[in-house]
Amino acid sequence: MSLAIQRSTAPKAAQYEELLAQARSLLSDETDRIANAANFSALVYHTLPDLNWSGFYFFDGVELVVGPFQGKPACVRIALGKGVCGTAAQTRETQVVRDVHDFPGHIACDSASQSEIVVPLIAKDGTLAGVWDVDSPIVHRFDADDARGMEALCRVFMELAWA
């Protein structure tokens, strides 16, 4: 399957609607979780503007371990409750961090990152599967519209790629 990926300049709601349709198409015929996670990461990274990292941390029963991503090399392991990813995993709540320097205990895997959004991934049985993490080199890049859009994308990922 060939999917043309272009950065969008449309309003955020329209960007996310288009991205949701592309994600559904990309994930619907593949059953391998790693392949789906890799393609999902690339789709988001190359579609949304002003990102410097997008990817997964999967929960191994003890801690979060880096999964497929786009961007510079990342921290490999993150404890629950540590940093933005560990906080999202522990609280099971999306974390929108407009300025990472204001987040107590932020883990700086890439010093260029200035803002971050992390969505917890919850499996159908209610267990923690991991987190979806997106960073930007722009302060205040993420807001409530991004939280809604990223949460919708993660629901599609969990429905189609984690089932």
Rank of each mutant, 00 (worst) to 15 (best):
G130A: 02
F40Y: 10
N39W: 10
H106M: 04
R7F: 13
P120N: 09
A88T: 01
R24E: 15
A129F: 15
E93H: 12
L27C: 05
S8Q: 12
T9F: 11
L153T: 08
D125Q: 14
F103I: 00
F58R: 08
A108H: 08
P49D: 08
K72T: 08
F157A: 09
M158K: 00
N52Q: 09
W162Y: 14
D146C: 03
D135I: 00
G126D: 13
V119M: 06
V139K: 10
S41G: 06
F157N: 12
G71D: 00
E18F: 09
V84A: 10
R7E: 15
E93K: 12
V118S: 01
A161P: 11
G71H: 03
R24K: 15
V118I: 06
M1D: 12
T9E: 14
E63N: 12
L26H: 07
R77K: 05
C154F: 05
G61R: 12
V44H: 01
G130L: 02
V131P: 04
R77A: 02
R77N: 04
D29F: 11
A108K: 11
P104H: 11
K124L: 11
R148K: 15
K12H: 07
G67K: 03
L19Q: 06
A161H: 11
R155L: 08
P73Y: 03
R77E: 01
K72H: 07
S54A: 15
F157V: 08
A74C: 05
S28Q: 14
V76K: 15
V44L: 10
Q15G: 10
F56H: 04
V131Q: 03
R24S: 09
T87K: 00
S115A: 06
D146W: 06
G67D: 00
A89P: 05
G67A: 03
G61T: 08
P68Q: 15
T127H: 14
A74V: 12
E17V: 07
G86W: 02
S8C: 11
E159D: 15
D29T: 13
G149D: 06
S115D: 05
G126C: 11
L48D: 02
T87F: 04
A35D: 14
T94I: 02
A74I: 04
V97K: 07
E151T: 08
D29S: 14
V76D: 14
Y16V: 09
D110Q: 07
S41E: 06
L121Q: 00
R155E: 13
V44K: 07
A144W: 04
C154K: 09
